[in-house]
Nucleic acid binder design. Sequence first.
DNA 1: GTCTATAATTAGATAGAC
DNA 2: GTCTATCTAATTATAGAC
Lengths: 216, 216
Amino acid sequence: MVRDDSKSENAASAKSGGTARSKKREETSARIVHAARQSFAKRGFHGTSTRDIASVAGTNQGLITYHFGTKDVLWRAAADNLFEEIGERLFDRLTQPQSADERENARESIREFVRFSAEYPEFFWLMVDEGKNADERLDWLISTHLRPRFEALSDYMLNALGYAEEDLPHVYYTLAGAASLIFAVAPECRQLTGIDPLKKETVERHADFVARLIIT
Amino acid sequence: MVRDDSKSENAASAKSGGTARSKKREETSARIVHAARQSFAKRGFHGTSTRDIASVAGTNQGLITYHFGTKDVLWRAAADNLFEEIGERLFDRLTQPQSADERENARESIREFVRFSAEYPEFFWLMVDEGKNADERLDWLISTHLRPRFEALSDYMLNALGYAEEDLPHVYYTLAGAASLIFAVAPECRQLTGIDPLKKETVERHADFVARLIIT
DNA sequence: GTCTATAATTAGATAGAC
DNA sequence: GTCTATCTAATTATAGAC
């Protein structure tokens, strides 16, 4: 998702060392992507302006064009960046059994998913924001990131958890919704119920609540 | 939420009958509100332009200003309209017991809520869109619509379902998320899983799935 | 009441100086 | 690579004709 910069490594810059230049490039690019991730998550694609992103990244709007071309490409880069982190944080360790008790393994996997949902509400926001409209952003999101993850999860649910094939969509969306919503609307939850869902004890409470609900 | 129009019922229009004029006013206003509900739900507050709303309503942008003043006021009117329908569709019949079996009553209430979520994904979209940012739209939404509903539901969950006070937020958001997400991201679900969540049988399947999950 | 025209802002994208 | 200045289009809100 980062533009090929081999062409810009010209003779002039080669003297001072192409590595330093491309390092700075990547630093700036990364700052922009990070700011974009935050903004797109909180305000959605339409609610986010490239000027705001540049401002959060501590730079200017022109640089976004230079590094990414269009707002759409930047959005994809932000999504890539998010899913990269998600992969490391979640999917890799979700299928690793810890205990001899199958059901307790499953419960702990669900607890892990709830903890993840508290850490990365962005995932849920992105899913809801983009999942409700059939457009090319959704197409890209599914083929690039969602499908491989869903299929890995499906295998796990079929084999380790023993769900029936036709229940998979219900399990998947039920779990995702049950685990995530309370954190995704944290400001509302605070104001409406008086409790802060992002407090460590509350996260654990919710994790256990959902885990015991799904795996009795 | 409709602007007081008593002042515009002047002497000139009184001749042709104030009722006819105010009837037309309300029809136009209602068309705009209806279009606004659709657009705000699907695209969010920022992603929706008043011109698009006017176009869907079959009128022009100037009339929106005339009837509602600002985009923000129109958004409130759209939310009011949604919650009015929700009240009729859901909250009134949720607490009416049908069977002698307490657990089956609870299950049927949950099934009803799932069916409602399939019919009104707007509710979920609104909740997620506005619940993630602490701003004055959220304040208004909570104090005007969410709090009274949440307290009514809390009573029901405490008394009829026998949940503990400190579990209420977890029950509430778990149920809301579990019931709604699959319908809220219907296009994604179709493309990702191959099943259409809005098909009648699928709605019932999900309703039963969630109901049996929560009330074993 | 309804509509067209337009003002004032803001958006994404571009050009060019450094 | 970075930044400022600017173009074009779209936005909300306003003014005024009918």
